[in-house]
Design a binder for these strands. Structure first.
Lengths: 243, 243
DNA sequence: TAGTGGTCTAGACCACCAC
DNA sequence: TGGTGGTCTAGACCACTAA
């Protein structure tokens, strides 16, 4: 009676299959950020598994920041706005470690074809259409970050029209395109300021800048953004917690 | 029958209390890195809870890299040697993201009393005894990192005697002192090379360096090390994955 | 008050590993 | 072969939330 009822046939553990199925619904946009999922019992009944199995899948997805559980209310699709995005992907702080929120001003925005390195980083075809954005980010009115972004046009159609760009792009990704950034891989270096960047950040040439080279990945692992941020870290720092 | 038997009285969930108890045994050195824990059934019997409750505690601790489960063999105390330490705490890579292992050469090692900032960072009393280490780390024979460390003497007695220091200090912490570094908080900046550092790294003064300011925490959250690493990132980078 | 997730238990079968 | 962790189920009670 308590043995496995193979309601979903296949090799992998039942709860992994449930997780995969739920993940596909998230990626496919069937459920959007902020949506309330059916209860554990409803999902269990629909999929023909026990509540505990559904729970294990939901637990894993919660641990991976894809879902948020609220006792007494239900399980929701994570909204990568404000809080989470802020603390997980925009980690600029002051020297004491207090979080800072830089404002953004777009310098350029254009549509073009992917150069070799852009295509490699974003795992798209060479010459595929891409959107490029250059912007300056300021803290307390003082420009501190010079940033270049490349986005696959296929994933973000219409982003290159006149639309206003919000301060935190990832909220726009989630709201308008149903894309949740779940992971980012970064390479950090120290580099001297070029003439152009020095001018924009009001520095001398060769001033040391923190270069953050980031590829952001959607929940399904697909690269959705490549950005290089050049940060003036005189009064700020980039904070990371390793665990 | 299936209701909670309050074998361990108290407010918090049973499995959290079990976890706390197991954690104390780890911190206290009752179990050391590499040790095999009793089976889930044995622990459950000893503590008067069900196997599932013990399992939930072990699962959480496994997720936090404190334990390692091996199917068919048992549950072991994590050894933060080589692999884990390498990938979680020494993240220097080449420009392509391939991990690099820097070698170390100690320049100075001394015993002293904590300065104000050291006491603050390590959460110890001002003027408490500390061990200071300065070392150069090289990749392929080329010096690339200048590093200053401060350690609380109380936690690492005898570390300032003539003993050889291994390449990766954290393995020494674990092996000789039973201290497992479970977490690290870092602040990253770009700074110009001082005259001294420039000389050691074979650079011009003011060359941009990546400054990594790290406080390492033991499993119980106690700070056990403060280090500032100044990295020459010409052919290397510091890689981080955010999730 | 009804419904949700949170916790706890109990017992079954499986896959893996050492002997 | 026996023991371990891995998975799955079933059912109970609790704490929280909303109406």
């Amino acid at each position: 009676m308590a043995s496995q009822a193979p309601a979903i046939p296949g090799f992998r553990p039942l709860y992994k299959q449930v997780k995969q199925l739920l993940l596909e619904r998230l990626i496919g946009g069937f459920w959007k950020p902020g949506d309330l999922l059916p209860s554990e019992f409803q999902l269990a009944a629909e999929l023909g598994v026990s509540q505990g199995t559904v729970r294990k899948a939901l637990d894993e997805m919660t641990a991976e920041n894809m879902l948020v559980r609220r006792q007494g209310r239900g399980t929701f699709v994570a909204e990568h706005d404000q809080e989470h995005a802020l603390f997980h992907f925009f980690k600029m702080t002051d020297r004491q470690g207090q979080p800072l929120v830089p404002e953004s001003r777009v310098l350029r925005r254009s549509l073009g074809t992917a150069r070799k390195e852009e295509a490699t980083r974003l795992q798209i075809e060479a010459e595929a259409a891409v959107i490029r954005i250059t912007r300056i980010r300021s803290i307390a009115g003082k420009p501190v970050i010079f940033e270049r972004l490349t986005l696959p046009h296929q994933i973000f159609p219409g982003l290159n029209d006149g639309r206003e760009l919000p301060n935190t792009l990832y909220t726009l990704f989630a709201r308008d395109y149903g894309i949740t950034v779940g992971k980012a891989v970064e390479k950090l270096r120290a580099v001297p300021a070029s003439a152009e960047v020095a001018r924009h950040l009001d520095l001398e040439r060769h001033h040391p800048l923190l270069e953050i080279d980031r590829v952001a990945l959607a929940l399904d692992g697909q690269p959705v953004e490549w950005r290089i941020s050049l940060c003036h870290t005189e009064d700020t720092a980039y904070s990371v917690t390793l665990a």
